[in-house]
Design a protein around this nucleic acid. Structure first.
Lengths: 136, 136
DNA sequence: CGCAATCGGAACGAAATGATCCGATTTAGA
DNA sequence: TCTAAATCGGATCATTTCGTTCCGATTGCG
């Protein structure tokens, strides 16, 4: 019930990126220095974030990346899912993975879907722009 | 952003226990057979749940355990915390663990507290009695 | 045309989780 | 009172995932 430090780093990096003026050219090195995240780890994260469509990348010398969408259009859930994969409380909720010992007799599963939606909603309700604001 | 299978098992076991009439004498063996959870794992879980005050245990031949409180007074958050420890999204939220690279300059932390509360609230709002109900 | 700087993926090591086993404690019955 | 069965409790070991690090592919500039 805690998000991995990878996801934690990703959130901090994205917030730092959102604090820059839109269109600013960013690099993994820059964000690593600014956030204190180890450079190799930052590179790994940018890769995942780009693969998820949250960052638009450009290779080459003058390359780098920028936010693919406005900060207000990116939610905390998007970032977490980009790094950790789908948000699912239990494997029961995952699409077609019947490894429950009780199979269909499991009475808890339908409730889990509700809980899952509530948790995901809590994360989806927080936009990156609000995270970039300086104060609470 | 997913709870461990240990916590998953614990929820299923507690739900199975809540479905029994109040005061019924339960054992780890019984719940293991009913839920399909491996017996040693079930024993480990009952230990943690008892240590958290969710189960009242009795040793000896006629021993076993029962719910320490009414099912309506036990929330999903209680179970998860009993197995996984405190619910904290990031280490920042944890009490006095300043290992953030940015230390106090981290602008994201105050927002995390809000998110943390929202997620915890989603889990605390689900009681064990509702989980024990047969239908969604 | 060569060089520098960047992203992208692959391999390694470490930590935590999950499953298993054995010992300590307690009560029921003889 | 003593034996014995049944339970909880803690300690040990394999497995998986996470986290870090390193190296190759690609692109733009001099």
């Amino acid at each position: 019930m805690r998000l991995t430090s990878l996801a934690d780093y990703a959130v901090v990096m994205m917030a730092a990126a959102a604090r820059r003026p839109v269109g600013t050219r960013l690099s993994a090195t820059l964000l690593a220095e600014e956030t204190g995240v180890p450079l190799p780890t930052a590179q790994k994260l940018t890769g995942r974030l780009a693969a998820a469509g949250l960052l638009a990348t450009a290779r080459g010398t003058g390359g780098g990346f920028r936010l693919a969408r406005r900060a207000g259009e990116i939610s905390l859930a998007d970032i977490v899912e980009a790094v950790e994969g789908p948000i699912v409380m239990t494997s029961c909720v995952d699409v077609e993975r019947h490894d429950c010992a009780l199979e269909s007799a499991c009475q808890v599963r339908p409730h889990m879907s509700v809980v899952n939606g509530a948790v995901r909603g809590a994360l989806a309700g927080v936009s990156l722009s609000s995270l970039a604001e300086v104060k609470a």
